[in-house]
Structures are given as structure tokens and as C-alpha cells.
């Protein structure tokens, strides 16, 4: 897990910097949680997480406004003293001189947004969750086919990139070729994207590097997509057993999440793009409750089999 520095947050949310003491790049946020320090301003600090971003909204500012400047300074000082990473004012609330004074004393940045508190904190938590999620990079291709994010894995030279190119040509979208960065953004969701340096590039042996976005247009690419389904491509092995019916459910483990997967044997002359496309449709159909293999057994052996 890589922490996020404050500068990234300021840039992402277009925050106004009231005071930064040149520390925006040094301060790292490592928890995906923010605090509205209502109780803390009232003097209660048990269970306080000083590593969280502090947000002052309408309620907190109204409370502080009612105090005398001296009292206000004391309470803010108690909060800053804990070594919080930064303090953010929402709804463009003005910063009292006492607040800036305390911030200067401990060199803690003060930032401001015009957004309302609830929507700001929820987007901030969502952003932090994605940035701080456990991550891994896999050698493969991520494409979106009929709305399903499909991760194609397999040895070098098995034809992943060629398959991706043809899938794109058939009207679907490329997210990443060669190296896919995957983050576990929740207990059920994996999000994949390409490292920025090689985003939307594809390498085809014999031709070289292609820029899919320039060649096929914006509608042929996507920045990120969930990993819904994994297709393992491997060279056809005469001795290995491949799924014939589609009743057996295979899974691939990525960052502790089990993703439904299939293994497709590759042999010259097999049109992989069509196979990938039909696997995506079939996967959607199974998700919606219909399984062709199950329907066939029902027909052959009766529904009670």
C-alpha cells in the first residue's frame, strides 16, 4: 500500500491552500477515513485517530463561532497538538486568525473547499479508498466487452495483445495491454488500469507499438474497469482436460478475491476474439440466471437430476 500525499489530494479536489508551510508533499495520508472533529472540539479525545484528515463543516464552524477568541484558540490548539495531517474547511468558511495561528504553531496545513461537507467527505473517502487499496500488477490484457471487464492472462507470445486488438476492432474497449495494475477497492471489487506511461498502447510482434486511442478513437479505450472475469490463455496441451460443458466453475484468486475464470486452449486457426466475446456474453447470461449447460442436463435427464 502506497500512501497518498496531500499535494495529490489538493490537486484532485482543487482545494484552496490557506496555509501549507511547504509541507504538502511531505505529509502522507495512510488511512481512508476522515473525521469531523465535533466531539474533539468539545474536549473529548478518547479513541481519536490523529492520522486522519480533519474536516470542519457548518456545524463545527458554527460551534467555534459562538466561542470567545481565547476559548476558540484553546480548543483548536488541543486539536492541532495531536499532530493531525491537515484541516479542511468546507463551504468556503473563513478561517479565524486563531486557527491560522494554531496551524502555524504546529506547521499543519489548512485547506479549503467550496463544496458542502457531506458530498466532499464522501468523495474524499472514496478517492482515498481507491488510492490506498491493496494493489498488484499482473502481466495480461484488460478489455471491456459488453460491459464486462475481462482480464486475459497467459504466457508471453500466446496471443493476448492480438486478441485484444481484434476485440477492439469488433467495437469493444481496451483498458491495458501487457501490464495491468489491479487494486482491491472493496471486499468484492477489483479495479484495473494501465500505468500512465503505457496507457492505451499495444505491442504487436512484427509491427511494434500501436496507439489504440489514436488509431481507433476515443470510443475504443477506457481509463479503468472492474475485473469481472478472467480468461487464461494457454497453448493447447493434448494431455490436459478442457471444460466441455461449462458446468464446472473455475476461479482465479487475485488479491484474495475469487474471480470467475475459464481456461481457453490456443491453437492456430482458433478465432480467439470471437471466443472471448462469446465467453463474455455467456458470463453475463450466467449472472442473469441462465446456464446453457444446466438447461441441457435438464433436457437430457429431467429437471430433478
Amino acid at each position: 500500500m502506497a500512501p497518498v500525499n496531500l499535494k495529490t489530494i489538493v490537486r484532485e479536489f482543487n482545494l484552496e491552500v490557506i496555509a501549507d508551510f511547504g509541507r504538502l508533499e511531505d505529509i502522507q495520508i495512510a488511512v481512508a477515513d476522515v473525521t469531523r472533529p465535533g466531539l474533539q472540539l468539545a474536549g473529548y479525545f478518547d479513541h481519536f485517530g490523529p492520522d486522519r484528515i480533519q474536516v470542519l463543516g457548518n456545524m463545527e464552524t458554527a460551534f467555534l463561532e459562538r466561542l470567545t477568541p481565547d476559548d476558540r484558540r484553546q480548543r483548536l490548539d488541543a486539536l492541532f497538538e495531536k499532530g493531525i495531517p491537515c484541516l479542511i474547511l468546507t463551504r468556503s468558511h473563513a478561517a479565524w486568525p486563531e486557527l491560522v495561528e494554531c496551524a502555524r504553531k504546529y506547521e499543519i496545513p489548512v485547506l479549503r473547499t467550496q463544496d458542502i461537507t457531506a458530498s466532499f467527505t464522501s468523495s474524499l473517502v472514496k478517492f482515498l479508498n481507491v488510492e490506498l487499496a491493496p494493489r498488484t500488477s499482473l502481466h495480461g490484457v484488460l478489455i471491456e466487452v459488453y460491459g464486462e471487464g475481462i482480464l486475459i492472462l497467459g504466457e508471453s507470445g500466446v496471443g493476448k495483445s492480438e486478441t485484444a486488438l481484434e476485440v477492439v476492432k469488433r467495437g469493444h474497449r481496451l483498458i491495458a495491454d501487457d501490464l495491468v495494475e489491479i487494486r482491491r477497492v472493496s471486499d468484492t471489487t477489483l479495479l484495473g488500469r494501465a500505468p500512465e506511461i503505457i496507457r492505451h498502447l499495444i505491442e504487436i510482434r512484427g509491427i511494434g507499438i500501436l496507439d489504440v486511442k489514436e488509431l481507433y478513437g476515443v470510443s475504443s479505450v477506457k481509463i479503468q474497469e472492474n475485473v469481472d472475469f478472467v480468461i487464461n490463455l494457454e497453448l493447447w496441451d493434448e494431455k490436459k482436460h478442457y471444460e466441455r460443458l461449462g458446468i464446472h466453475e473455475e476461479e482465479t484468486d487475485i488479491l484474495g478475491i475469487k474471480v470467475p475464470s475459464i481456461t481457453i486452449p490456443v491453437r492456430p486457426g482458433r478465432n480467439l476474439a470471437i471466443i472471448v466475446e462469446v465467453a463474455a456474453i455467456n458470463f453475463r447470461q450466467k449472472k442473469m440466471g441462465y446456464n446453457a449447460a444446466k438447461a441441457l442436463t435438464d433436457r437430457v435427464f429431467g429437471p430433478d437430476y
Binding site: T136, L179, E181, L201, I202, E203
Partner: peptide, 17 residues
């Protein structure tokens, strides 16, 4: 660092910067 690439893949190695 935290990035890992297949040494047989050009784009992967490039992405390590």
C-alpha cells in the same frame, strides 16, 4: 518499487520507467 513487469514484455518493462 511496487511495480513488477514481465521481462519479455516491452510495454511492461517500459512502464517501470
Amino acid at each position: 518499487g511496487e511495480r513488477r513487469a514481465n521481462a519479455k514484455s516491452l510495454l511492461g518493462v517500459m512502464s517501470l520507467g
